[in-house]
Design a protein around this nucleic acid. Sequence first.
DNA 1: TTGCTCCTCACGTCACGTGAGGTGGC
DNA 2: TTGCTCCTCACGTCACGTGAGGTGGC
Lengths: 278, 278
Amino acid sequence: MATLLTIGEFSRLTHLSVKALRHYDDVGLLRPADVDAATGYRRYAAAQVPVAHVIRRFRDLDMPLGQIRAVLEAPDIDARDRAIVAHLERMERVLEQTRETVASLRRLLDGGEPDLAVEYRSVPVTPALAIGGRVAWGDAEAWLADALGELGRAVGPDPGHRAGPDGALYGPEFFEQHVGEVVAFVPLAATADAPGSGRAERVDIPAADLAVTVHRGPFADVDQAYGALGTYVAERMLGADGPIREHYLDGDPDPATEVCWPVLDGRKTIPPDSRDAR
Amino acid sequence: MATLLTIGEFSRLTHLSVKALRHYDDVGLLRPADVDAATGYRRYAAAQVPVAHVIRRFRDLDMPLGQIRAVLEAPDIDARDRAIVAHLERMERVLEQTRETVASLRRLLDGGEPDLAVEYRSVPVTPALAIGGRVAWGDAEAWLADALGELGRAVGPDPGHRAGPDGALYGPEFFEQHVGEVVAFVPLAATADAPGSGRAERVDIPAADLAVTVHRGPFADVDQAYGALGTYVAERMLGADGPIREHYLDGDPDPATEVCWPVLDGRKTIPPDSRDAR
DNA sequence: TTGCTCCTCACGTCACGTGAGGTGGC
DNA sequence: TTGCTCCTCACGTCACGTGAGGTGGC
């Protein structure tokens, strides 16, 4: 009754390659209406053409096959539309990131070295409200914004409850393996009695000796501060174990980021200014 | 003398993962300043940090490693900048395509079926000026615009030299394997004496019996016309061998595309309207 | 000295593309 | 009947990520 199409015909009607169609059959994304048991020949129904067109558009938008399947199998139109909107929003963010990366590349190629002002700082143990987790590189910005938002609400609006700006600790694996421990924190004043709530816990941020530089400008350029500060520390052989810290300053004109590199205890070592830089 | 950094340190300074750094060494994109002959330990120079930052930005922009190498090895700043500009232009085009695909997806999900008006047409052999080649799916739009531009210049501005609108032939492999023969052509009036020039050759576009439908609207939606027309032809068992043709009409309000499906000779077969649609 | 860092395979991932070698359908 | 279409492996691509298993450096 219904017309069945060979895989070649279906390919011409849908603009999906034959290899792609076989692959979609293999992974169960788009099964032919019929498969000849003896020969294995795939036969597609004309009614499958619109589904194929939808799949092709999602693939053109780089949606993974698993997500496309989820969209197609969505129980109702609402769920389907939510999945689509979610993907389009992800694409918007990627787009925005692309723009930022292009600008950052231009600055890097045109601009000179960032001028580096390094300060040594010995910080004591600091009580804080914190959220920690194993975070993947690509999720870090969203995760951090989310965590600091939650912490901000838990601490409350009274600035007297804070003992410093928002911050985060990054374990070495976060940089070296692009997935690792990240701890977002808000340092608490002694007067604050913010209880743990949700994911937020009271913790003590450990004491540390730090070499600190302030990065002003777009966050996409923060690696330049890492490069300059890390080189500075390495040249002076001051490096020490421990997580790298960032402090997020509200900043005068623009927000700024303090990058804090763990270094050897300045009181136990030769003062850095009198060291041989070699 | 110069400070050398371990791969782990270099990773933290550059925000490239250790695995990525080893990969870039393997493929020769970013060789460590020194490799210990005995242990194989990689040592990076602080001076390599900026190169690594550039690589990271290009990778964030999805530039393939081979192209990044070409950019880094560019003999002079001009060549380097041309390579960068070329990549950014490619990205712009991808971006524009993304926007079009999103719009096309919305239309497909919201909109109903396109209304299909099919016309049968028996076209004779037509002399034409043509450019042909093996074209990959993703290059087709740019290739076609280029080829038709060249043909237009070769035929000249006199409309009396043309016997019809711009067109193209697409072999079945173009759709089924996403790479295949494409021929762009401008049909020539008997009065025209356009000689071959550059890639352009005088050819005869073969006669054919065609089922034709006109697709109006964005070219991103043209697959809907293919689906509707191809289904129509398949349901009536009219399909015949031969390339699919497109004619590019300047169109009244907007440009339009005629999609032409090869069919059996109508004079030798039962007239389609009197056929059983099963 | 101990564990931490670094090393090299080998294999996996994702969405197909590229043949090779062979059978069925018109 | 012939060649054209379709089939199934098996392997390649790209840029790494994921362990396994082992050695060197502080």
